[in-house]
């Protein structure tokens, strides 16, 4: 029994995945997505940490409702001013979920590849299954550090031209300016998450459709999150929306989590009526 469980643990830590949640454009839902996906995966019993790379602003701890328990932060750990375990905050609702908060008193120059790499390696050694890196907006240092060590990327995009263009730019960086690209390893697996989607507006021609976005970006669709008041309410409360299963946003994020973990789930929230959207999408 003992040997079985230890073998399992070893396999798990070897398979820890670094996932960057990125977009280029700001305000599209990166932090919301990081919080919900991290929570959702942790709800499945996986050990998950969400790292806030938005040094200088600090949002993730607020959205995840742990801002009052921040003592040390990511930059303190990078600079050896605190131990990793002193900075990690354990979630009060989901046992296997942790947050590594950003510093509000530093700027993005405090991040360097050597330090970030060391922290990520330490998290891997601690047996985290998923290390979710919440990227800041833009394509500057903070964003580049967030993506540098990624194995996978979730590209968050709004159905709007400038957001799609920025995501395209970020996909270019993911293919060129990351550890995997520089060492000629297998390319980062990229997933598209379309947020703030409103089928009614798409119908009226006021919003890009899923098909339009996929045509330009050309990466697999992980899910569509509908535009909803629940997102704002849950951010303000510090409770990730996925924890209240009655909302459509929670349902959408749960789908995303299960799809991400390898389960087949039909896409929802793409059309007003639930009918053959696949036919329209790919037909």
């Amino acid at each position: 029994m003992d040997s079985v469980s230890s073998t399992k643990e070893a396999t798990v830590s070897n398979a820890s995945k670094v996932v960057v949640v990125t977009s280029g454009k700001g305000g599209v839902g990166k932090t919301t997505t990081s919080a919900n996906i991290a929570t959702g995966i942790a709800l499945q019993g996986k050990k998950v940490v969400a790292i806030d790379f938005d040094v200088g602003l600090r949002n993730l701890d607020l959205v995840m409702g742990c801002e009052r328990r921040v003592v040390y932060d990511f930059v303190n750990v990078i600079r050896n001013e605190a131990k990793l375990n002193q900075a990690l905050i354990r979630d009060k609702r989901v046992e296997t979920l942790y947050v590594l908060p950003a510093s509000q008193t530093r700027d993005k120059d405090a991040l360097d590849a050597e330090g970030v790499g060391r922290v990520i390696n330490e998290l891997k050694e601690q047996g985290f299954d998923y290390i979710i890196c919440d990227s800041p907006a833009g394509i500057e240092k903070g964003a580049q550090m967030a993506m540098y060590f990624a194995d996978e990327a979730i590209v968050v995009t709004n159905p709007e031209v400038s957001s799609v263009r920025d995501s395209d730019r970020v996909l270019g960086l993911l293919a060129a300016k990351t550890s995997r690209a520089e060492t000629n390893s297998a390319a980062i697996r990229t997933h598209l998450l379309l947020t703030r989607y409103s089928p009614a507006m798409v119908k009226k021609g006021e919003m890009l459709s899923v098909g339009d976005v996929l045509e330009l970006l050309g990466i697999p669709l992980l899910g569509v999150i509908p535009e909803s008041k629940a997102v704002l309410q849950s951010s303000n409360k510090g409770t990730p929306a996925i924890l209240d299963e009655t909302t459509d946003v929670a349902q959408a994020y749960l789908d995303v989590v299960f799809r991400y973990l390898g389960e087949e789930r039909q896409h929802r929230f793409i059309e007003d009526q639930k009918r053959g959207f696949f036919g329209r999408l790919f037909g």
Partner: peptide, 8 residues
């Protein structure tokens, strides 16, 4: 053989 993205 891979997409040429914005900025490249």
């Amino acid at each position: 053989t891979t997409p040429v993205r914005g900025g490249q």
